[in-house]
Design a protein around this nucleic acid. Structure first.
Lengths: 64, 64
DNA sequence: ACAAAATGTAAAAAATACTTGACAAAATGC
DNA sequence: GCATTTTGTCAAGTATTTTTTACATTTTGT
C-alpha cells in the first residue's frame, strides 16, 4: 500500500525522491519503493527518512 | 545499543523473548538481537513487536 | 542445591533489502 | 512545443536480515 503520508511530507519540504535519497544515503529506487509501499524497509532507513522530513516514526510509518 | 524500552515493555507484559517471538512470527534469536540492539530490523518486525507490546513505534524505536 | 526456564551467542544457510545501470513515461517550467 | 526534471519500473548483483541448529550461561522457583 502506498505511503501517502511520506509522499505528502516530502512534498511539504519540496524535496524530490532523489534529494531525499541522497540525504538518507540510499538509492532513489529505494525511496521510490518505500513510498510506493511495496516493501519492508529497515528501521534505520525509516528513521533516516523521518529525520529528513522532520517527522516521527508514528507520523509516517505507524498503522492508522 | 540495547533497547531497554523494549525490554521494559516486554517485562511489563510478563512475556519471555520466546513468547514475543512466536507472536511476531520470528525466531527467538531475532527478538534477542533486536533487544540487544546490535542490528537493524525491518519496519514490519518493529510494528509487530510494538503491537504485541501495546506500544507505538515512537515509544519503542524512535530516537530520544 | 537442584531442576527448569530464560537468555546469550555462534556459524552456516535462506530470504530479502538495497544497489547499480538503464530506459520509458509523466510532470514541470520556459 | 520543447527541454528538463521527476517518477516508475525492470533485471542482475551485493549486502544484510532472519532462520535453523546447537550449546553455554544466567535466572527463577522450590
Amino acid at each position: 500500500m502506498k505511503n501517502l503520508r511520506m509522499k505528502s511530507a516530502r512534498a511539504a519540504k519540496d524535496m524530490s525522491q532523489e534529494e531525499l535519497a541522497k540525504i538518507c544515503n540510499v538509492s532513489r529506487q529505494t525511496i521510490n519503493a518505500v513510498e510506493k509501499g511495496d516493501y519492508n524497509p529497515t528501521i534505520n532507513l525509516c528513521i533516516a527518512i523521518c529525520k529528513a522530513l522532520d517527522k516521527t516514526l508514528d507520523e509516517i510509518f505507524w498503522i492508522q
